[in-house]
Write a protein that binds this DNA or RNA. Structure first.
Lengths: 177, 177
DNA sequence: CGGTACATGTAATCTGTTACATGATTCA
DNA sequence: TGAATCATGTAACAGATTACATGTACCG
């Protein structure tokens, strides 16, 4: 039930097309909430009929016409209400852990491979997060309230990746012993 | 696409009813993969028509009749194949981070409340994991291969909760400064 | 007498994924 | 000439959530 709120959130900073929204959901906000363009276009229609966003059609030369969405007062209010409401915890799902419950029935090598592969993914992702951190959030205390929020999301990502990476190392050591 | 494999995995150790499976998905395996009883009963039917599990109907006195499911050789093989196949990473979704992107538009107090509440959830969950760890996995090196796998899942949960807890503390410090 | 455990389901809805569809422009 | 970017959509299907539905036995 939070894709609509993620969309409204992306529209706080700037008016965007569905296409541009889909790109946002590949980076930044997208590190913590993903959505395909199909989902986004579907949701934009819903939000529009509910009066939470407004559309402006823009004709372009040489490019397809586009529909630029912006927050309405209704939408802004709905978003604020949602932000202040309780925040349920999502259940995390990871196939890797189900696979671990199968240890003993498959060759150890295939488990080690899966963990080593996962380890590499965490290394890359962590490097990306750290790069963004150094580039844009070197002095957290001096940031505006809004940027502190964005920074804290990034920091959460960093802590998650570090923890996952630590676990991979520990798992490899235990299984190779 | 992994609920069926999670079910097959639970059936490795013991034959179970749909009801008992649903309970497993509240603890143990359920820490890493959740499913409601509705999903489970639906999936059991599917797995049965595919020949991956067998059923035995058991009449009981004073209690409803039950259907006890067990792995077939086909199911066991399908599970092994899946375990050795590549493991995609799930996208993590957390509303709390979308809310953080809204900082500056709502009272700081409500953010602090949300983070403090989340902090408390991590404290409880971590305590639970640690209790299980001390009770059943005090000496990881001495465990059987299968139990090492189960233990490593638990350890992953511990590392996740620790990281999340650390982040909560850091966030509260930055926002209160 | 009320709640919990046991035990299994259907129906409706919502969310997410995959596949299909179109079409111009820019860059290598 | 072929790939990538911009731009918006439909359709089908799969997966997850919520609500509804039934009925016994045991414990306090």
């Amino acid at each position: 039930m939070s894709l609509p709120h993620a969309i409204l959130t992306a529209l706080i900073e700037a008016d965007l097309t569905g296409y541009a929204l889909a790109k946002q959901f590949d980076v930044s906000l997208g590190f913590f909430w993903q959505a395909s363009h199909q989902q986004i276009y579907r949701e934009l229609k819903r939000l529009h009929t509910q009066g939470q966003i407004a559309v402006q059609e823009v004709s372009q030369m040489g490019r397809p016409d586009k529909r630029v969405y912006s927050l309405t007062d209704t939408g802004r209010q709905a978003l604020e209400d949602w932000v202040q409401a309780p925040t349920p915890r999502r259940n995390s799902k990871d196939e890797l852990f189900i696979k671990l419950y199968n240890m003993g029935t498959v060759p150890l090598e295939s488990m080690l491979r899966a963990i080593a592969e996962r380890r590499q993914q965490h290394v890359s992702r962590l490097a990306l997060y750290r790069k963004i951190e150094h580039r844009s959030y070197a002095n957290p205390q001096t940031l505006s309230a809004h940027k502190k929020g964005v920074y804290l999301s990034l920091l959460a990502g960093i802590r998650q990746e570090e923890a996952a990476l630590t676990w991979c190392e520990e798992a490899l050591i235990l299984l190779r012993a």
